[in-house]
Design a protein around this nucleic acid. Structure first.
Lengths: 206, 206, 206, 206
DNA sequence: AATGAATGAGGTTTCATTCAT
DNA sequence: GATGAATGAAACCTCATTCAT
């Protein structure tokens, strides 16, 4: 009479999760049949339901585990209290490193999540919230300490940061995940910091 | 003996397309039942198949019509030959205006496209290519004419621009498309141009 | 307010009938779409229903017209009163000639009829009855006049005659209707008359 | 992870097959709905697809199993090496006995096979080929040993034999399969051997 | 008489989920 | 805990037939 929750740390639980990532990476969420996930994991169809409530629960679990890794950055950066420029660099690097290490998982996260029920999207948004909050904190701190230029909208900046990271990962996935994603860190970091324009008003200030 | 191709400009064709956008916005591609699309359009199930080859054809048509509008910006900007800064501003504005006018369609484009078959994603990528090319051209021209700062990777910059626009639209959709998307143009434009950092190296150059 | 019955002799009626034979020959009864029959006949879908009650009616009409030709042999032979051996030869020859002239129609009659509803099969049987009767009459007359050997079961003989003709046509169709069907007449006639065995009991009788 | 192939000898496989024969006998191939076959077999619709690839596979399996029984005659006769006259008698008897035992199956084989896709007809032809070959061998051997009269075309004779058997079965089915089919063996055998005519050329030989 | 756009019932097939073993 | 055969709801799509023009 053990509940699903109590089985989360078994080897089989993780085998199914890994298998789900693999299958979903190839076929997407809707294309991923439970039977194939089970076979890939080397268990019977029914066994899947001993560890997960239903198919949606598998997807959410996959996302939770993945996002957890990314969100861990928040916690880590939180504890380290690095100065904002460094924090931004670490953030980008960590994000790229995490997904770069596991292309299948990146594919699921970037591409296949954004489908399925609004329910799932809502949950993903919830899970991402700490991450967004952390970006916001870095930005605010940077503005306060003078590490970043003063007058800009934090939300717009956060969307630029997140959107750029996202699109960089997408491009990497789309071209087949062939190059080293983390190696893009410096280029992206520089781009976000400096934008594409001259800083005429800056020279005026001097 | 009229083929599907010959029926593309009828009122019913557009009614079904509109209805498909509406239903897909709510339920996603897989969740959108042909029967519901038909009912919403006020036609019989079978009628849908007089205008579209199959369900996938509906989605692709939705995307084609939408992306066409956005890509039209390419053509327009091409003809106008505006200077790069202006071109970038027009691009952002046009993108926001087009999607801002039709939130449902934006939802389909932003969220639901990225699922389904790789075939569809490939087609979307094909349709977006002229758009990406145009951004590249603007960037290159801007660097040549000195409108943009010199040393940056064009691809990275393009991903930042596209990613930021994308994420801005996502945020707008996710909050329920309640505010005016086009009104964000200046803020985003400024952000992309200037980044978030001081331009210390610029002062060094003086 | 003219009924379907009154339109049977128009050019369009026959155009549709010809077209139906062609399409059914290729696709079978179930595979033959009314729309394709209409297109092949150069009329609109709806027009078909001005000349035929429904799809089944088309098939039955096709069969009626064809079988009519074969059954006409009955009438003709009836009128001629040829002696039995000659009558049998004429019968085989006429059957082969009629179908040999129109392979499409033969295909429909031999292969595709035997499907669809029992209702249709019943009707075909009804239409074939005069033909069977005629064979029976030839056989009985032949036995009475001494043209055929005495002791054999007329029904069995009739089935042999009909079955052999049928199978000969089938073989001809199956190999692509490439050779001259009517040219088989003498061989089949001889076979039916003499069987495959020696006639030992005959020599005993002498 | 059991494939369809591995389930062919289960009770359920045969239950579905029997049920398919029954339903097809009544309604024909196209009229036989998978749902009705499933209900008749006492299983759920989906279960059918655990044992058969699709509806066409059911039909082909029905045919394979049946024709296999008839073709088994070939093998048996092959092994026995009976003299030709005996072989022919056994052949007719075996054919009638096999179909006579299972009228539904006979109906499917005789009537409903000949429809549907050319693909299926081709397959049936393939399955029947050994049977036809065997008839040919009997005929050739009979001619060589002098059991049959010398000059006749083997193919024509084979068609007469097969066509007569076929038509006899058809007649039996059409009248409701009320009498004993196998009891017709001697009559048909005699008919095929002797034909319907006197053997004038034979008496001339004497 | 002729058209052909529209209809909608109906059938095959898939696949997440269950439950007896 | 584990299995996997069985379930059956649900969805796409076809196509004979109708009817307003």
């Amino acid at each position: 009479m053990s509940s699903i929750a109590q089985r989360k740390d078994t080897a089989k639980y993780h085998a199914i999760l890994e298998s789900a990532i693999k299958v979903m990476a190839v076929s997407g969420y809707h294309g991923a049949q439970v039977a194939r996930i089970a076979r890939e994991a080397g268990v019977a169809d029914g066994t899947v339901y001993l560890y997960f409530k239903n198919k949606e629960d598998i997807l959410i679990s996959v996302l939770r585990e993945t996002i957890a890794q990314i969100v861990m950055l928040s916690t880590w950066l939180e504890g380290e209290h690095p100065e904002p420029l460094m924090a931004l660099h670490k953030l980008i690097e960590g994000h790229f490193a995490t997904l770069g290490r596991n292309p299948d998982l990146a594919l699921v996260l970037q591409v296949h999540v954004r489908q399925s029920d609004p329910v799932i999207r809502e949950q993903v948004a919830d899970m991402m919230r700490p991450y967004h909050r952390m970006i916001d904190r870095i930005l605010v701190l940077g503005q306060e300490t003078g590490a970043f230029r003063q007058p800009f909208d934090v939300r717009i900046a956060r969307r630029m940061i997140f959107g750029t990271i996202d699109e960089t990962v997408n491009a990497w996935i789309f071209t087949g995940a062939k190059y080293n994603l983390a190696a893009q860190t410096d280029l992206v970091y520089d781009m976000l910091l400096n934008g594409i324009g001259w800083r005429v008003e800056l020279s005026a200030e001097m």
